Simulated scan of single mutants.
Amino acid sequence: MGSLFEELEAREAAAQERVEELEIELSDLTEQLGLAREGMERLRIARETVAEVMAEMSADAPVTAEDPAAEPVADEEASSPYAGAQRQVMGVLTVPKWQPGMRVDVLPRVYQDILEVVADAPGPVRAKQIVPRIGLATTSGRIEGTRSKLKRMVERGWLDEDEPGLFTPARRRTDTSSNSE
């Protein structure tokens, strides 16, 4: 009977060794998966940023007097090598520089929502506080996209950023809003 117990111990030792090998393999794969996810997230954020930059560049192009909010999407689709493929096409979102007398309704809806959240806040707000209040999931991509919009709104006079990452309604806009034409 001694040899049966020896055989079982040998098999147990072999199984233990295999478990340890698989745990090491799993650890390596988990690390690789984490790195792949990071790379994928960076690429997604880069794609969104490039799309926003291109949209801004398109917004600076001359627009016809007939429809100043025209979105040059149809021609872009026709000439695209992906024409006919199922994909989401981003239109051009224009954020004009704020001028006295300019109303919030000249902004795209998402920017209006952001302005409303910032105006309703008791103090300065961060992008990650705004994202859930405008109905978006609180993922890093959505937060970065919203932060980009906030920076654009600061750049164009709709908001102020006295401290990095803290946004408030533009004092210039609220100070001059009573002098509207």
Rank of each mutant, 00 (worst) to 15 (best):
K149G: 10
E7F: 10
L136F: 13
V118H: 04
W158F: 03
R171N: 06
S148I: 04
G91C: 00
I134D: 04
R133P: 01
L22Y: 00
A46Q: 05
V154L: 06
T49Y: 06
V19H: 02
L4G: 04
M102E: 08
A46W: 05
E38H: 06
S180D: 09
G101N: 01
V110E: 02
E17Q: 14
M102A: 09
L107V: 05
Q32K: 13
I45Y: 08
P62V: 05
L159T: 01
Q112C: 03
E9A: 08
T138V: 06
G39T: 03
D120Y: 05
T30P: 02
S177G: 05
I24Q: 15
E7A: 13
R173E: 05
A36T: 14
T138E: 11
P124D: 10
L150A: 02
V53E: 12
E66I: 03
K128C: 15
R44I: 03
Q129W: 04
R156T: 02
T94F: 10
M102N: 07
L115I: 03
T146R: 02
A74P: 05
T49C: 03
M90N: 07
E116H: 13
M90T: 08
E31A: 06
I130G: 05
M102P: 04
R142S: 10
P164W: 07
R103Q: 15
L136Q: 15
A127M: 02
D113S: 11
D75K: 11
W158R: 04
R18W: 11
V53S: 10
V19K: 03
E48P: 00
P124F: 08
W158Y: 04
A46H: 07
E20H: 10
E181R: 09
A69T: 14
L93A: 11
L150N: 01
R173C: 06
V104K: 11
V73M: 10
A51H: 10
A65S: 13
V53K: 12
A61G: 06
E21M: 03
A78W: 04
V131P: 00
R126C: 11
T139E: 10
G2T: 09
V95P: 05
A65N: 04
A170H: 01
A78D: 13
E181S: 12
T94C: 12
T64N: 06
D113T: 04
E38V: 09
L150P: 06
Y82E: 14
G101Q: 00
R133N: 02
L35N: 12
A121D: 07
A59I: 01
E163A: 14
V19D: 00
T64C: 13
I24D: 14
D67Q: 01
A15D: 01
M153Q: 09
S58C: 15
E48L: 14
P164E: 08
R126S: 08
P72S: 01
E77S: 00
L43H: 12
A46Y: 05
I134Q: 00
G91M: 00
G91W: 03
R47T: 14
T94H: 10
V63L: 12
L93S: 09
E41K: 09
F167Q: 04
E76D: 08
A55W: 02
Q88R: 14
S3K: 14
D160R: 01
D75N: 13
D28T: 08
P96D: 02
N179F: 13
E144N: 08
L8P: 06
D67S: 07
P72A: 07
T49D: 07
L29C: 06
R109G: 08
